[in-house]
């Protein structure tokens, strides 16, 4: 046999052998459904869950041989998230998609799952540690939170140069979850840009309870009167920040006076904040793709052994006054007109 013949034979052997060694492949061959579990921290307390569950419905239509389940915490508790993850692993699914909210807390259960042959795709939040140290998941599908903060900060500075908003003197990053790695990175990205521009930068844990958050933010603004930028790392807290600043007479709309508000997410609150000139900019991290693509990669990994060679970034895209109308149309088409209007709490 020639060398070419040996190569062809080896390839043919490999092609027939690989599916049999891949977990879940046997199930698929038997005609049983594969079962993927999405273990998320984006629960029914977070409107962004709709993006993910709607995307999963679309996945279900395209891949009827997969049963995809969505389970989530309803509060900002890493312990509860880990407990849900452990429970999901115990049911021996054919694949798991999970945001790495805390690498330390998730390392043990996920490594055990991977060792047991359950493929894992990280979504929404990656394990930020260097390659080799991080949890050996198949791939990461989601935004880059550091980049989110950085890009929003860079956009704000471009608007300073254009004479749209004042130069930052003190920036506060208002976070509702002090343990959330992704939120910390959003703040860190913004800090990087703003400190380089000569501004003071503080992170403030405001909590998720609206009255307490307002009280905390108002206290901060009263004590730090030079604050002129507020970055809320959740879209739903942007009206609180704007409201507090407005009540304090700090002129929080987008103009050359007073405070400038920046936020995140492509929900109706964030987009309408931009369209109504209350918020300078927000971002999209491609939530719909984060609900769909991890399952597709799990499917292709389980069935055919595919694994991307690098992370798959679904964002960030900066949403500004220039493109907010298009985003509003897109979100309306996903959520529906009525839900969109109801969720606009401005």
């Amino acid at each position: 046999m020639t060398l070419k013949g040996w190569i062809l034979a080896a390839t043919a052997l490999a092609t027939t052998a690989i599916p049999a060694t891949i977990p879940g492949a046997a199930l698929a061959q038997d005609g049983e459904k594969l079962r993927f579990v999405v273990v998320s921290h984006i629960g029914s307390n977070d409107p962004n869950m709709n993006w993910l569950t709607m995307a999963m419905e679309e996945f279900g239509k395209k891949y009827p041989d997969v049963e995809a389940e969505y389970i989530s915490t309803n509060n900002y508790s890493i312990q509860e998230h880990v407990r849900l993850l452990e429970q999901a692993i115990a049911t021996q699914p054919d694949g798991i998609a999970v945001p790495i909210v805390s690498p330390d807390a998730f390392e043990g259960p996920l490594r055990r799952a991977i060792d047991a042959g359950i493929p894992v795709v990280a979504f929404n939040i990656a394990d930020g540690r260097p390659e080799g140290e991080r949890i050996p998941y198949v791939t990461y599908v989601g935004g880059d939170e550091l980049l989110t903060g950085r890009k929003l900060g860079e956009y704000a500075l471009s608007q300073v140069e254009a004479g749209v908003v004042p130069a930052p003197k003190r920036v506060v990053c208002a976070s509702h979850d002090s343990a959330h790695e992704g939120l910390k990175k959003r703040c860190a990205g913004m800090r990087e840009v703003m400190e380089a521009a000569g501004a003071q930068f503080d992170e403030l844990f405001i909590g998720a309870e609206p009255a307490t958050a307002r009280n905390t933010l108002q206290s901060y603004l009263s004590a730090n009167t030079d604050t002129n930028y507020i970055f809320t790392v959740a879209g739903w807290s942007s009206p609180w920040a704007w409201g507090v600043a407005n009540e304090m007479g700090l002129s929080p709309d987008v103009d050359m006076e007073g405070v400038t508000v920046l936020t995140v997410d492509e929900g109706p609150v964030s987009i309408e904040g931009v369209r109504n000139n209350h918020v300078l900019a927000t971002n999209s991290q491609g939530f719909w793709l984060q609900g769909y693509a991890p399952l597709e990669w799990l499917y292709w990994n389980v069935k055919y052994g595919y694994a991307p060679q690098q992370d798959i970034l679904t964002g960030p895209i900066i949403i500004t006054k220039d493109n907010a109308d298009k985003w509003a149309d897109l979100v309306r088409s996903v959520f529906g007109e009525e839900a969109y209007n109801q969720q606009n709490t401005w």
Binding site: G207, E209, P210, R214, S237, W240, W346
Partner: peptide
């Protein structure tokens, strides 16, 4: 009373209160 004053809220209203 809280929401009559500031009706922009979230499902976490009253969390840990």
């Amino acid at each position: 009373v809280t929401l009559a004053d500031k009706p922009q809220t979230h499902v976490t209203l009253g969390d840990l209160m």
